[in-house]
Amino acid sequence: MGSVNNLLFVNDSHEVILESIYTVRVKEAMNANPMRVAPDDTMRTAKNIMKENGLSGLPVVDGNRLAGILSLYDIMACYDNGSMDDKVSKYMSRDVILLEEDMPISFAINYFNKFKFRRFPVINKNKELTGMITARDLTAAMLNNINKQLQKYDKLNMRLSDPDPADIRSDTVIYRQFIVHKYDFENAGKVTSEIKKILKDRGIKQSIIRRVSIAAYELEINLVVHSDGGVLIFQLLPDAIMIKTQDKGPGIPDLEKALTDGFSTASEWIRSQGFGAGMGLPNVKRVSNDFQISSDVTGTEVKIKINLGNEEDESK
């Protein structure tokens, strides 16, 4: 729902579609090595390239750097007010909205919803133009990915939606299960806010709420950043709070390292979002009274417990 172009939707879509939105990178969907012009080329050259290739916009590239973008409107403005021998730099728009190739396509979908442009230039880490992306490219990439996802979906969904009866204690006061998607940075933290609200409403002590929030947030972020998606299960018991996360893989290759302060496998892009300091699991362990983790290629499971008792019980 909600796209001005009636093309793509985000919020209430099926899990498989959400999965694609957050897993497929812009790089995989874009048209690599697109047609381009230089700022010193003439408007006639640009018009001919657009006409021959059926394009409504062209990136303007100076060396390897993106200098601007030229649209059909700029060609029309040139017909009205100038000469087709004028340089492209006179008409191009310099205020360009860009996508980075490592972003998930959820960002591209948002851009298409937010801005009226039909195509966005894509740049790499060195700010060089590496592609262009249109809504059609997005749809194609998503359909491709959805086909792949569907093949493994049913099995996984069964595993995630059936809570293990052994996990639910008979004296559970509140039980909640949340699904967390890979690379869904826009919603990361909402599960923690929800848990925090539950505990506040119950009048749980502030120092306990803070420790639970830290653990829940780090675990939630881990699902977003490192896993292929998973669930976070929250249980309020009379004497403790238990949180369990279970994901669909790919597993932690070296558990000991993952539990070491400062060790991180996060990419540069994830770090630019403020995560990947290598403090996630150590932080969870630090605030928990009990911490258990197991991991193999089929997924990772973390179980923690925070006691509701005295401050003296707090683990260091």
């Binding site: 940075f185 826009e186 990361a188 933290g189 923690t192 806010s193 803070r210 830290i214 947030y217 780090e218 972020i221 770090r271 979002q273 403020g274 995560f275 990947g276 300091a277 290598g278 403090m279 996630g280 932080n283 630090r286």
Partner: peptide, 28 residues
Amino acid sequence: DMMSEVLVGDEDNRILVTALTTDQVVRT
């Protein structure tokens, strides 16, 4: 700029200083 680093401390009445401009700063 690393939110987990911020979560390490447990001082009260803090102000955060950062160059990060995302929602996650407010959540942290």
